[in-house]
């Protein structure tokens, strides 16, 4: 693993925090490649460590959103249940699917989602 300058850690930490707090997610997609390239971590370790970085960030964001009553449990609980169920399925599927094909499909839908949100 590479030695990383404190200044770089602080700058990237600020960037990741602002992104994840502002968009309520997406920070992980920046953290994994960062750990990979800047810290020289191998992929599996980078993915696992990204969770450790994003978890407290998401916790702080969640508390802020709660203070503003921006988390609607009453109408949102089915989605929350779905996400947790899906998460378990996804984690068990992880090693059984061709990752490149799945990733390609994911990127396509992400792009489509972005365009859709710009239009509607």
């Amino acid at each position: 693993m590479k030695k990383v300058k404190k200044l770089h850690i602080v700058l990237f930490g600020a960037l990741i925090g602002i992104i994840n707090g502002f968009f309520g997610g997406g920070g992980g997609m920046v953290v994994v490649p960062l750990l990979n390239k800047l810290f020289g971590m191998e992929q599996k370790k980078a993915q696992a460590t990204a969770l450790f970085v994003i978890l407290p960030i998401s916790l702080v964001s969640t508390i802020v959103y709660m203070c503003y009553n921006s988390i609607d449990f009453k109408s949102g609980w089915p989605v929350i249940v779905g996400i947790i169920l899906g998460g378990v399925v996804g984690a068990t599927l992880l090693n059984k699917l061709n990752n490149k094909v799945v990733k390609g499909i994911f990127i396509f839908f992400m792009f489509l989602g972005g365009i859709g949100m710009l239009i509607w």
Binding site: G21, L35, S61, V64
Partner: peptide
């Protein structure tokens, strides 16, 4: 999980996520 190398990243990120979440 590489705790030692990344705790500062998590800490700084958490502080700045306050800013992001407040603006949002």
């Amino acid at each position: 999980v590489a705790f030692k190398q990344t705790w500062l990243l998590a800490l700084v990120g958490s502080i700045f996520s306050l800013v992001g979440a407040l603006v949002a």
